[in-house]
Simulated assay, not measured.
Amino acid sequence: MLVSRFFCRFKPPGLRIFSSDPVWSAGVMSGFSSQPPSRDVFVRYSFGRPVLSLRLPAGQQCRFTVTPMLTTVGDLLRDITAKDPGVHTAALLNGGGQRISSCTFMENVLNEDFQLVINGITHSVRSLGQGSSHEHMLGVDDMKYVVRLLQSALTLPQRQHAAHAELLAARERLAEQLQPLETVRVKMAQEAESRASLLGWAGLAYLSLQGGFLGYLTWYVFAWDVMEPVTFFITCSTSMMFFAYYVLTKQDLIYPNVRDRQFLHFFHLRASQQKFNIKKYNELKEELAKVEGDLSTLRSAIRLQVDPPQPQKAA
């Protein structure tokens, strides 16, 4: 391929190379010069390079990236043939219907409209314009941006390890600040848990004594005719107490929720007595959780670079 490019670049002036018979070229000129642009074949720019999008005879839409100053017509046709075994013949024609030599660089082809013939089917391709096929020349700002990207890519492992060390230091610092607060919080939480449990046992004891006392009055002191209205009013009073709890707290009287509410009440009461800074404790916990999350993400990225995923073997 390099030899062919050498001879094509230094061919004698005035020499035109055709791979087909002139009679065949004349027939092509008359038969394919007026074809409308095909929707199956078009040229677009992607990341600064022209890309030929082509639907092959097998029905697969393929993209061929073209380097205008390096890719020749023969290179492009070989890539198309290698991509689909169903491509038996492929050729490029200029706007006049003449076959373009395989030594011609795509830089010259992309400047004008051309035609792509595959298995005898002609596709007209519209050019992107005069001079648009040349390589994109970067400006000063673009070159600075590319240099920064290269520098970032080269220094990425060092920066990741430095960030990992900074996160470890931040985690240790936050852990040291949280340690005395955490000790006090655990002690206060245990006290609040004990008082909430004691309140529950006290409620159970009250209900047990109330039921026993009502039974004693019913069977040993008074008759049921006397105690029936008493128990009715006690039931009504209990219902009023439950409704009053809902009005004051805007919550249903469900025992787990009541227990948690009493726990928080006792905890904050104890914190105010010991002047425990709950706001500072919550801020430190949130900051520590954020550092832990960043550290986990950074470790995953470093581990992915050190141990790249192995391709799975087909069963």
Results as ranks from 00 to 15, higher is better:
F276Q: 11
N277G: 11
N277D: 15
I278G: 09
I278V: 15
I278F: 14
K279E: 15
K279T: 15
K279S: 15
K279N: 15
K280F: 09
Y281H: 15
Y281E: 14
N282H: 14
N282C: 11
N282L: 09
N282P: 08
E283T: 15
L284S: 06
L284R: 10
L284M: 12
E287P: 05
L288N: 08
L288H: 07
L288R: 07
A289L: 12
K290M: 10
K290T: 15
K290H: 09
V291D: 07
V291I: 07
V291L: 04
E292H: 08
E292Y: 02
E292G: 07
E292N: 13
G293V: 03
G293K: 06
G293W: 04
D294V: 01
D294R: 04
D294E: 11
D294W: 07
L295I: 05
L295W: 06
L295K: 01
L295D: 04
S296F: 00
S296G: 00
T297Y: 03
L298M: 06
L298R: 03
L298C: 08
L298A: 08
L298F: 04
R299M: 03
S300W: 00
A301D: 03
A301G: 01
A301Q: 01
I302T: 01
I302K: 00
R303M: 06
L304Y: 09
L304H: 11
Q305V: 08
V306P: 00
V306M: 02
V306R: 12
D307N: 10
D307M: 02
D307T: 08
P308E: 02
P308R: 02
P309S: 03
P309K: 01
P309D: 01
